[in-house]
Structures are given as C-alpha cells and as structure tokens.
C-alpha cells in the first residue's frame, strides 16, 4: 500500500514561532521525494509534520491540512498514534532499542501494538529484514543486541523496524548523514527497491544523493535567520538540477548560495 500526500497551506509553529510558512505540495505514491535546503530552513520540521511527530516537541503545532489519500491527518478526532502507524519514520542517527535483540527490535512495533502470535512475528521479522537487505547479514545472530551492528547495519535495522508495522509512507530524516559511503549506497539502493511499495520522503543535505535517489525534489529556503522557512520550488529532480524555475534554487544547487 502506498498513499499520496497532499499538503495544503501548512504553517508550522513552535509555540509562537512560525518555523515553516504556507507550504503546499503533492507527494506522489510509489516515488521518492527529496527535501533539500540549508540548515534551519524547516525541512526536517516539515517532514515531522507529515506523521505528527512534530507535536512530540512541547509547543509544536500546525495550521492547515495534510491529506493522506484525502483523509486529513490533522482532522478532528484523528489519533496521532494511529497516524504514526500509517506513516513511519527513520531518523538521522540509528536508534535501535538497547534493551532488545536484533530480532526483537524488528518486531518491536508489532509486539508493542499487541501482536502476540509467534509465527506471525517470526514471518514478519524475516520479511522485514529481507526488505531492508539485512537478512543475510544478521540471520545467524538475531538474538544478539542491535548495538553490536555497524552504523549502516543499524540504520537498515531501523528501516526494517519501520517497515515491519506495514506503513503506507516512509519518512527518512537525513538517514545517511551518520554513515560511510558504502553504507550510504546500501541505503540508497534500498530506497530504490522500497519505492515500489511505499511513498518515500527523504530529507538530505547531500544534493548528489537527492539527484541519485529522488524522483521529485523540493527546495526549502529561509530569507534570514529567525525568519520562517518556506518552500521555494518543487519539481522533477532532473529539472531541478538542470533547469530550475527559481533563481534561488539554481543559486543553491550550483553553490552560489548566500
């Protein structure tokens, strides 16, 4: 299952501070969408509003609509916990649960949400690890702690954990920034495979990475420090990196920024 995200006039706040101003975009299913932009421009903040993780931070709130296949994530009576089951997330630094083994980490989401059937859990464990290209590396040490894996393996473990709960959308917040180039390549390959089943949104500081993996790219910018971030342009990746519509985009991509 893969769903379309339609963001309409979204304002994102931290308390009274407007972090992202009036952003609208459509994120297509079965594709990879990349967010690029300078630090502090609100791209991570914006990403976190797509599964209501933004609200975890005290004072975090939004105005506007985020439609997931026409259902407003911020509509009245929508449970943020249920939203996060549908829209999964992978973080900047790999964060396997330290109290759990590799295998338990993968099915943590299922188990914590009440799945007890051992057969189901075992099947899902293998399926998710295969899905994250990690099965062959860890199948002999599923009961060992996740902290013993390398950084890249830990990140793929976190991806396996995220896809084990069968989300429709997978958000990735700079998933490769703590990894070496080979692990980065492994994750990028994985994204290419996963996009046949999921809507993938990735925040990245690495423009080559955006060019390599993304079908569409969105450029966020901010006018000055302390001013809200905003969406400058969103286009097909090829167009963004060859012939963008906005001057600011071209400046940023060609390194003439600021």
């Amino acid at each position: 299952m893969s769903k379309r995200i339609d963001v309409q006039n979204l304002n994102v706040f931290y308390g009274d501070f407007l972090a992202v101003k009036d952003a609208s975009m459509v994120i297509e299913p079965r594709s990879v969408t990349a967010f690029i932009g300078p630090s502090g421009c609100g791209k991570s903040t914006f990403l976190r509003t797509l599964n209501r993780m933004h609200e975890v931070i005290p004072g975090g709130r939004v105005e506007g609509k985020v439609l997931l296949d026409n259902e407003d994530l911020y509509g009245p009576g929508v449970d943020p916990v249920a939203v996060r089951r549908t829209v999964g997330m992978v973080f900047q630094r790999p964060n396997p649960f330290p109290t759990m083994s590799i295998g338990d980490n993968v099915v943590a989401g299922l188990r914590l949400n009440g799945v007890k059937d051992k057969k189901v859990l075992k099947e899902k464990m293998e399926q998710s690890l295969r899905g994250a290209n990690l099965w062959d590396e860890v199948k002999d040490r599923l009961d060992k702690p996740g902290a013993g894996l390398s950084g890249g393996q830990q990140q793929r473990l976190c991806i396996a954990r995220a896809i084990a709960v069968s989300p429709d959308v997978l958000l990735m917040d700079e998933p490769c920034s703590a990894l070496d180039p080979i692990s980065t390549l492994a994750i990028e390959d994985l994204m290419n495979e996963l996009k046949s089943e999921y809507t993938i949104v990735i925040v990245t500081h690495n423009m080559q990475q955006a060019a390599r993996v993304a079908d569409r790219t969105a450029f966020f910018n901010l006018e000055a420090t302390g001013k809200p971030g905003m969406l400058v342009e969103m286009n097909d990746t090829q167009k963004m990196f060859s012939n963008p519509d906005q001057r600011a985009t071209e400046d940023y991509i060609s390194g003439r920024f600021g």
Binding site: V56, M89, N95, A108, L112, N113
Partner: peptide
C-alpha cells in the same frame, strides 16, 4: 536518549 522515545512514537506506540 530522547531518540528512543521518538523511535517508539514513530512506530505508532502510545
């Protein structure tokens, strides 16, 4: 670490 809490929330755990 707060990251562990966030990882858990992101899995749809209350």
């Amino acid at each position: 670490p707060n990251e562990l809490r966030e990882a858990s929330y992101a899995l749809g755990v209350p």
